[in-house]
């Protein structure tokens, strides 16, 4: 039972990573590593900026 729960949690985490839920965490980690002296973007602003960036760099989707 325990193994099943662990498996489900792992699958959930994997799904979230594939869908891109962890983009802000990734950004925070990157920011902390490269510009530790400046405050990172707040979460809402990050997602908004990410949306707007996608406007100009559309990702192809194949057939």
């Amino acid at each position: 039972m325990n193994a099943l729960a662990v498996g489900l949690v792992k699958a959930g985490r994997y799904l979230k990573a594939v869908m891109g839920d962890d983009a802000y965490e990734i950004y925070l980690a990157h920011h902390a590593a490269t510009h530790p002296d400046t405050p990172p973007m707040p979460e809402r602003m990050f997602w908004r900026e990410r949306d707007d960036e996608q406007d100009h760099n559309p990702q192809g989707r194949c057939c």
Partner: peptide, 20 residues
């Protein structure tokens, strides 16, 4: 840059790439 250039876990990237 923490945004579009991100070293991504290979298994996650496999999912991304496949979906694309």
């Amino acid at each position: 840059n923490g945004k579009d250039y991100v070293p991504t876990d290979r298994r996650v990237l496999f999912g991304h790439h496949f979906a694309a």
